[in-house]
Computed example of a mutant assay.
Amino acid sequence: MDAAPLHSPFGSTRSDSMPTDKPTQRIASLISAATEMLFALGLADRVVAVSHECDWPPEVATLSRVTSSRVDSAASSLEIDEQVQKQSVAGQPLYEIDREQLEALGPDVIVTQAQCDVCAVRYEDVVELVAASDRLSATNIVSLAPETLTDVLRDITRLGEALDVPQAAAQLVNQLETRLADVEHRVAEVPDAQRPRVAIIEWLEPLMIAGNWTPGLVERAGGRYELAVEGRHSPYAEWSALVEYDPQVLVLCPCGFDVERTLSEVARVTERREWRQLTAVKNGRVCVLDGNAYLNRSGPRLVDTVEILAHLVHPERCGVPASVTDPQQAWRPLANE
């Protein structure tokens, strides 16, 4: 679920560039995608705090949490959307920062985001907190705001440069690009006419189509994606538009939901009369994907997502990706009952 972007994709509120005379020692990550980047860059020993949503890799479980949500995530999809809309209209933040704990930890760098007010702590709230705190007066803020997969790879490079590990960043990006190239090679010979129409549902009620980087992921995986535009925020959609588009492959992956949570609410879409009109449903090409892990976070695992989508869209060309250790936890076909 998305809101308008705030500021430039990557920057520091303290200076035009990070200090280069010594390595940055202590990092607080206020967004799960950044946390995954930091660990992939080999910076686990520098991370002293993470957000309440950070759950990957498993090692983050021992780290201090310095954010919390003001939204009841146990509520239904419709109720969550209503909470978000109500607080947004009132200008209230959806997340809070634990100022006292953050000051006590004393990070040299805070990594946050300016891409989506609904997804994580607002960039301006981080800026205001740091500006008002004498104890954080020397803290730099690094902000990410990717809109495409290319932006995500660039952010890895920039994060590596900002934290004095440019070689590690270059190596990681090269590995990810190699995997993407392998997928693209496997589907390159598929004629346009044989590339199925794909729809990825980011919210069940009300219906929302995944935008931002998602159209590019699907296209790299050999599918067509015409209900949202790459680089633009995820749009709400009418069921009539989904029926008219008539996807041949349909993926359900609500923002922040794992497979089990999505399955617990899947009746919100499967019991609608429009559901059985869809070609994907008739042909048994519907699955539930762990959106929390594989779609909603703008981190390195988006490459895993391309590999998963390639398997779902072209199973005859792309096998189960080696990057996924437990496919049953990552995605599950939805029975056509």
Rank of each mutant, 00 (worst) to 15 (best):
V111E: 02
I80W: 12
V66P: 06
V121Y: 05
N174A: 15
L30R: 09
C287P: 05
A90F: 07
P321V: 00
A132G: 08
P254V: 02
Y236W: 15
Q171N: 14
E202F: 12
Y95L: 07
Q25I: 04
M1G: 13
A162C: 08
L159C: 06
Q277L: 11
E124S: 13
V66F: 09
S12G: 05
G222P: 02
R276S: 14
W213I: 10
L144T: 08
R99P: 12
L6E: 12
H52R: 01
A188E: 10
A199H: 03
V152P: 09
V187P: 03
L163C: 07
Y245F: 14
A237H: 11
R232C: 11
A335E: 14
C54V: 08
L78H: 12
M208T: 07
W275M: 07
L289C: 02
T13P: 07
P196R: 00
P315E: 10
H311R: 06
S298Q: 12
P333C: 03
A310L: 01
A280S: 07
L30T: 01
C54M: 07
L38C: 09
C318D: 00
A170I: 05
I201V: 04
Q87K: 15
Q248G: 13
W56G: 07
R122M: 01
V109T: 08
E271L: 15
L278R: 07
S12E: 11
L41F: 04
A74N: 14
T112E: 09
S69M: 05
T178D: 15
V303Y: 00
P19M: 05
A193K: 14
E189D: 13
A267E: 15
V249R: 13
E230A: 01
L63G: 06
D117C: 13
A33C: 06
R224Q: 15
L250Q: 00
E177V: 05
P321H: 02
G284K: 11
P93A: 07
V306T: 04
E226M: 13
T279C: 08
D98H: 14
V118M: 13
V303P: 00
G42R: 02
L250C: 09
H314W: 06
E82C: 14
P247Y: 06
Y245A: 09
R276P: 08
A120K: 02
V165T: 00
Q167T: 15
C253K: 12
Q101M: 15
A104I: 11
V198A: 04
P107H: 04
Q115D: 14
S298L: 02
E226W: 10
R46T: 09
L180K: 11
E244Q: 14
R70V: 06
D81T: 14
L163G: 06
L289E: 04
E226S: 05
E124D: 15
I200Q: 05
V48Y: 02
L312R: 05
S69L: 03
S68L: 10
L180H: 06
